[in-house]
Design a protein around this nucleic acid. Sequence first.
DNA 1: GTCTATATGTTGATAGAC
DNA 2: GTCTATCAACATATAGAC
Lengths: 201, 201
Amino acid sequence: MSVTSAVDTAVKSRVTHDQESILLGAVEVFNRHGYDATSMGLLAENLGITKSAIYHHVPSKEYLLELALDRALGGLEGVLADPLATTSPAVSRLDFVLRAATEVLTDRLPYVTLLLRLRGNTELERAALERRRTFNRAVAELVDEAQADGAIRSDVDSRAITRLLFGMINSVVDWYRPDGRVSAAKVADDIVAVAFGGIRN
Amino acid sequence: MSVTSAVDTAVKSRVTHDQESILLGAVEVFNRHGYDATSMGLLAENLGITKSAIYHHVPSKEYLLELALDRALGGLEGVLADPLATTSPAVSRLDFVLRAATEVLTDRLPYVTLLLRLRGNTELERAALERRRTFNRAVAELVDEAQADGAIRSDVDSRAITRLLFGMINSVVDWYRPDGRVSAAKVADDIVAVAFGGIRN
DNA sequence: GTCTATATGTTGATAGAC
DNA sequence: GTCTATCAACATATAGAC
C-alpha cells in the first residue's frame, strides 16, 4: 500500500493498494469482526477504498481467506520440515516443535488467529482444518514416542496431553500483542517451562 | 419442545417449541456456524419451524445470545461463590477453581463455547467479555497469592501462568464431547495434573 | 487502481390469518 | 404456536467510465 499527498509528506490523503495490502487489511478486519460477519463494504471502509476496488485485486472474499490460511498452515508445516523436528530423542523434538509452533503463532499472528477460529462450514475451511489436524497428529505422535521413552508422564493419555499443549499454545492468539511488553521469545520460554515442569514448586 | 403425532407414537411429525427449546437449538446452531453467520432462516430450518414462529418466543436474535451468555457466566461466577473458593491456602483454592471451572465448561458446554468465541463488537458482547475478565482476574489473584506462599513457581509471571491455565481449560470446548469416551471428571483430573505437575517425568 | 451505478439475492423483523 | 406474505436494509459481485 502506498500513501501519497500533494508534497509527499506524512499527511494521509489517498491510498493505493495491491493484493498484499488488501490481504493484510482484510485479515485484520476478519479477526476483529469474524470472517463471516465481515462484509465487503466494511472491508472497503477499513481499507479506505470502495468495494469495487477490492474486486480489482481479488476475485472474492473467500480468496482472501484462502491466502491467509495458506500462510498460517505453511508456517506450521514448516516447523515439521525443520531438521530439528526429526532428530531424536523424541522429547527434544517435542521441545523444539512446541517452541517453533509458538514462534509461528507470534510471527504470523493475524493469519493463525484466523485459522484457529474457523468452523469448517465450507470446503475451503474443511480443507484447512484437515491440514491443521495433520499437524496436530504429528505432534501427538511425538508425545507418544516421548512417553514410550519414559521421558514424559504416561498416566495422562497422549491425546489429552497433546490437546492441553495446543490449548496453551493456541491461547497465544487471544492475548499476545506484538507491541506489548512481553517478547515472543519469552512467550515460548514460558509455555515450554509450564508445559514440561508444571506450576507447582 | 414437544413432539406429537396422530397416535402419540415416536413418529416425529410436528414440533412445538417454547423459549427453552428455541434457546437450546439456537445455541447449537450458533456454535456450528458462528453467531453472526447464523441467520434466523437457518435457525428456523434447524428448529423445524418458520422465522415468524421464533419471534413469537423471543424478541430478537440477540436476546437468544443474551440468555446463552448468562448461563455461561452464571456458572463461572458460581465457582467463585463456593465456600471452597474462599478457604485458604491459596494453592488449594486454585486447585478447586481449576476443577470447578472445567466442570462448568463440560456441564454447560454449548453456552460456554458461545461465550469463548465472542469478539466484543456489540454492547452485549462487551458486557459479557467484561464479566469474563472479572472472573479471570479473580483467578489471577489466586495465582498471585499461591506464588507469594511459595506453593507455585515464581519464575513465570502470574498473568502468564493464568493465561496458560485458561488456555488449557478453555480448549475443552474445542475437543470435549459429552457423548465421548472421556468423562468430564477425567478431563478435570488431567488438566489439574498437567497444570500442577507438567508433563516431564 | 479507483470510481459510480446496478443486478440479484438474503438479512432481521413485522402484520395479520388460522 | 405456527403460518404466509411482506418490507427496508444490506449482502456479494459485475459493468463500464475515468
